[in-house]
Amino acid sequence: MHEEAMLRDLRRKLVEVGRTESVDRFSVVRLWVGALAHTSETTLRDRWPTTVAGTPAEGSRLDVERSDDVHDPRAGGIVLVRVEVPPVSTTTDERAPAALEGPEGLRARPE
């Protein structure tokens, strides 16, 4: 429940960033995961394709930086550090074909 709520909030933020920056596709999303965030990188990667389906982050590469600092003020959370935008015009036609094929296409691209 805890990580589900944080992932939903990240999804909201990614949509907002896409809208405010007028970008319809990110190539990379970078997260920072605090030492006390009570989630694992494996779990995040498993849940990521479903979390970002239908957002500019769909099909993007997920970079995860894991912190070991339990004293960091944000140790309990997940931080959306940055997103990267691909160089060419980003229309939906240029997305990975798999991302256009319905639920099965929601799987992450191989990295």
Binding site: M6, L10, V79, L80, V81, E84
Partner: peptide, 18 residues
């Protein structure tokens, strides 16, 4: 290759939702 990087630095929040 990246056209630009957008720094976000946003801490995800846990919120109830209804």
């Amino acid at each position: 290759m990246t056209d630009r990087t957008i720094a976000v630095d946003y801490l995800a929040r846990v919120e109830g939702e209804g």
